[in-house]
Design a protein around this nucleic acid. Structure first.
Lengths: 146, 146
DNA sequence: CTAAACATTCATTCGTAATACATGTTATTT
DNA sequence: AAATAACATGTATTACGAATGAATGTTTAG
């Protein structure tokens, strides 16, 4: 279970902008700071603009900045717009589901509930909080690797 | 955000065995019932055996059956053993993390908490419950597709 | 001894995330 | 008006790992 690097990069861009709220930042500056592919960031920034998280301006002295205050944008909201999907099981997508027991097993609703719990946590946190130093780690339940 | 088909198939195998608790079932029977690749199931079953979820017996009249009662095996436990990892962000794996802000941002702890909430829900449900008909859907928080 | 079953390893396919590239559009500056 | 610096947008390529396939080994019942 992973988020895409795309979501990861999207959050990093918004975090950087949160630190410099109000200022205009260029993609090149972001790529240099994070030491990641400028080409990939181009797409990430483009998408963030389309979804209204950032305001973009072209031309000389152009760049990007947060379109809304950092304390009004939740992490959950961002992730919902950047992840391609949240289809945990085959049966989550009725278009492609071919499982023969979809109608008689309740795994789907269990995973639905788990997914909701996941998103709910992320909806409680804003970019402003994420940009602050981590207060502690919430890893109360250890994850075992198979 | 997805689980692997491998985890999906693992759960399906255990669900089938839950329905036939005590009986011995062959991989071929499972593949026929679910109409999925027998080769893939071979691996799934092998892994479930290694991790103690099922008891396997070779030779004529061999097969597999649950190694523990269905009501004692939680969905969360299974998923933890079948998913390759739960590394939601690059910074989740210190071995490969190259993010330059890992130490000053708190996204990691937020995602940790969300992940714990996710697993916690799945730890509440057993295979016995999953094998029963779904009572309802818990989809309280709608997921938007980017 | 044979057949039926799982055990185990290796090889291949395939989807898609990740990346790279090329060209277009806009706006500022001189 | 021209040059430049920035984002916009679409296309192509690469790379990784999940998914699948195949082959051989081992065990057990009859």
């Amino acid at each position: 279970m992973r988020l895409t690097l795309y979501s990861d990069y999207s959050l990093r861009v918004l975090l950087y902008l949160s630190h410099k709220e109000g200022e205009t930042v260029t993609i090149t500056e972001l790529a240099d700071f994070y030491k990641i592919s400028r080409n990939h960031l181009v797409k990430v920034v483009h998408n963030l603009g389309i979804n209204g998280f950032i305001a973009t301006s072209r031309g000389k002295h152009g760049g990007i900045r947060l379109a809304r205050p950092a304390h009004e944008i939740t992490v959950g909201e961002v992730v919902r717009y950047t992840e391609p999907d949240f289809d945990l099981l085959e049966c989550f997508n009725p278009e492609t589901d071919q499982c023969v027991i979809t109608n008689t097993c309740s795994l789907k609703s269990m995973l639905f509930e788990a997914r909701s719990a996941f998103i709910k946590v992320l909806d409680r946190y804003t970019l402003a909080e994420a940009a602050a130093k981590a207060p502690s780690e919430f890893r109360s339940i250890p994850i075992l690797q198979g």
